[in-house]
């Protein structure tokens, strides 16, 4: 596919970066909510974060769906984490970059398998679930969750959250953004124009 190999336009590049930054900021707002939630939940505070985890996966499918460029999801996710670590000082620290890389790769893989052509509910759902699944093992190793009683519960919560917040919500958001008109100059608008029946 020549369209996939084409050089990134500056607009694509800036869009992916802007998405990364905006979500980096919104993630940070989410972290504040989550810290509050985890203090409220006392000893199970650590668990409440799993419910919100999917929110961290949102930006990758968004970037992929709008620009349809290979790698855009990974770049956007890593940008968001750079913002969190470098500028906002996330409690997770620089290793968040690695987590972001895994999340981005996991979220982008389902789209890559369809060669960036199919953007159905199923592909989005798979994207969110896979992103959560990949990053789970990384976090599990780092936090020493193996041997803890809650391993499977944690996995289930995170994948479900990824599927909902990081997958399906992304498709809703893409359609809302599409209607505002800000995406009219991007690949997503051209794809819609060439195949309007398959929304």
């Amino acid at each position: 596919m020549s369209a996939l190999r084409a050089r990134w336009r500056t607009r694509d590049l800036v869009l992916v970066v802007v998405l990364g930054v905006t979500f980096g900021f919104l993630y940070w707002v989410l972290v504040q909510a989550w810290v509050g939630l985890s203090v409220l939940a006392g000893p199970f505070g650590d668990l409440t974060q799993h419910v919100l985890l999917g929110g961290w996966l949102l930006v990758a499918p968004l970037a992929v769906a709008i620009t349809r460029r290979p790698g855009s999801g990974v770049v956007a996710e890593v940008m968001a984490s750079v913002v969190e670590v470098v500028f906002l000082g996330s409690p997770v620290g620089p290793m968040l970059l690695v987590a972001a890389l895994l999340q981005g790769a996991g979220s982008e893989l389902p789209f890559a398998l369809t060669r960036y052509r199919r953007f159905t509910w199923g592909v989005y759902a798979l994207s969110g679930a896979l992103g959560a699944f990949l990053v789970f093992w990384f976090t599990a190793v780092r936090a020493g969750w193996f041997g803890s009683d809650l391993l499977l519960l944690r996995l289930g919560l995170q994948v479900a959250s990824g599927l909902l917040l990081g997958g399906l919500l992304a498709r809703v958001l893409v359609q809302v953004l599409r209607r505002t008109g800000v995406l009219d100059s991007f690949a997503i608008a051209r794809a819609d124009a060439s195949a309007p029946a398959r929304a």
Binding site: R11, V14, L15, V18, L19
Partner: peptide, 10 residues
């Protein structure tokens, strides 16, 4: 916030 950001990014 997102829409305004994308617009300015363009």
């Amino acid at each position: 916030l997102l829409v305004g950001g994308i617009r300015r990014g363009n």
